[in-house]
Structure formats: C-alpha cells, structure tokens
Design a protein around this nucleic acid. Structure first.
Lengths: 150, 150
DNA sequence: ATAAATCCTACCACCGTGGTAGGAATAAGT
DNA sequence: ACTTATTCCTACCACGGTGGTAGGATTTAT
C-alpha cells in the first residue's frame, strides 16, 4: 500500500474544512468529531498541512483552520506528496524522477518509471473540488458504473 | 511505496530466467550471482513464484527453475499481486474491489477506486516479454523521451 | 556415493505506522 | 484580569512488515 492513513486522513481533513468553513475557521475538535477520528492523531497530520502552506490557522478561542486557496486550486497529488513524502510506487525511484545507481542497466526501471507517471498523471489532474462535488466521472473515468444514468 | 523488494526481485527473477533458460532449468545460485542479490533472500521469493504456478522447478543436481509459460503470457500485475499480496494503493480497498464499511458515505473512496483501476490497468497490459524486449514505448507511453529517435 | 540443487522452518534487527500524553502559548469573550 | 478554547510542540510507545540470515532435510543427476 502506497498511501497510509496520514495521506488519507489529510484528504479527509481538507474536504471537511472545505465543506464546513464558509469563510471562517474550523476547529480540529469539530473535524475529529465529524469524521470520527482521533483528535490527537489528526493534530499531527493537520500540522503538516499547515506548515506546508495548505491551510491557514488561528490560535486561541474561536480559532481553527481554513483553506489557503479555493478547492479547485488544490490537486490531490500535492496534498499526498506533502503528507506522505513521496508517491513513488517503488524505492528505486525517488522524488523528481531521480533514479537509483543501477539505473543504466536495469531492465525493469522503465516499468516503474511508467507506473510512477501514470499515478502522478491521475492524481495531479483531480482537484479537491472534484472530491467535494463527487465528480465520479473524472475520478472513475470509463470504469464508472453509474455515470451513464447520472 | 507500494511495491517492496519482494515484488521487484520477483520481476528480476522472472526476467533473468526468461533470458537465461533456453528451455532448461536455471539455478537459484546463478540468478543470485548474475543479479547480485542474496541467494537466501531470493529463495523465499522464488518459492512464492513457484507455488503460485509461475515457475516449474526441478530438485537435485542440474535442477533449478524455468518459466511455466511463454514470457508474453505473463502480465506484470499477476506477478506483483502474487508476491505482494495486493496492489491496492490504500488499505480501505482490498482485493477484488471489496470496500471498507464506511464506503457508502465516504467521499474519497471514488478517488482511491479510480487510482486502483489506473494502476491495475497499466500493469495488467504489460507483459514479461515487454520488459525483456525493452518495449519502452509501451511502458513509458507518451512520456518516453527517446521513443521518437528509436 | 557424492555433489548440487531445491525445499522447509525458524529466527532476528530495524523502521514506519498509528497512535497517546502532557503541557506551553495564544487569542477571544466576560 | 481572568477564564476558556484553541493551536502548537515535544516526547513516548506498541505493533507489524520489510529485508534479510541460518541450518538442515530432501531430492536428483552423474
């Protein structure tokens, strides 16, 4: 598995804030309660999002978090890369396409590089707004079972 | 990261056997030496491949392993699923598309399902023969930098 | 009989995952 | 000024998977 709870919860947090903000700050306690997740654990994840510039925060009473940009201006790839560190499907491919030292003679490298591209291409084209709006056609593409009826 | 050394080495083993077999059996010691990998560790991986029907084995002197089918009849997805257990990018999607219990109300599930499909679609269309033949166009697709010159 | 191989079981160090705990700093409302 | 609600920060920890290692039993060709 490539995306741990860190990345998944980060996305849950982002969508929760987007849905419940209406311009103001959303408190961590509210998010944790709504999403039924540990507030303490969420704290460590939201801290990454905040330091990474995905959120704006306000301390003290009535404080909380809100999105730094509009939902359509976040792509899923950047959120997951920030929280997970990398989305590379294998250890022999690092960030920014850097290869391992056996790369020159490795016959399987093009496979991993291709897989990496396919994954990043998919995730970078989907936005936070797509998730909030339930854009199933964009997320599931030709595999969407119900898109024809919708 | 989604594919550990288990899956990567499995693929290395399969390509090594395909290239060095010419109908006969290839010994584990030879594979380990050629690929510069621990023979003992490879043993545990090749055992999975063998039990999973990917290989045929012969014990005793002059024994070893050979492919059970032609290289073009293996797709990469099945090799990796056998060795890794699953290729699902997240824990909330299991094998065969089974979803978690919050699936009905989960707004991020279509994203993960879509990602899962994209990955499986890519890996199931590439064969062992493609890797051996260095079919960069198929593996790297539009991202292949050198395909135009080839 | 011997050598060369697969096969089988057991063991282990390390690190990432998925948390928990406690308190310090800050801001708003009274 | 005080209280309350909130973020922020540091430290800690159990568990399981990864990436091996070790030793021997079994099988087959020569």
């Amino acid at each position: 598995m490539m995306v741990s709870t860190k990345g998944r919860y980060a996305l849950t947090v982002m969508t929760d804030i987007a849905r419940n903000s209406d311009g103001g700050y959303v408190s961590l306690a509210d998010i944790a309660e709504r999403e039924n997740l540990s507030m303490k654990y969420l704290e460590s994840i939201i801290s990454i999002l905040n330091k990474g510039g995905m959120l704006e925060s306000l301390r003290g009473k009535n404080g909380g978090y809100k999105l730094a940009r509009a939902p359509e201006d976040y792509n899923i790839s950047e959120i997951l890369i920030l929280t997970e560190g990398t989305l590379a499907p294998v250890n022999c491919i690092m960030q920014d396409g850097v290869k391992c030292d056996k790369a020159a003679t490795c016959s399987t490298l093009p496979l991993w590089a291709g897989l990496d591209r396919v994954i990043d291409n998919y995730l970078s084209k989907i936005t936070l707004a797509d998730i909030i709006n339930g854009n199933r056609r964009k997320m599931l593409g030709d595999y969407c079972e119900h898109c024809d009826q919708e």
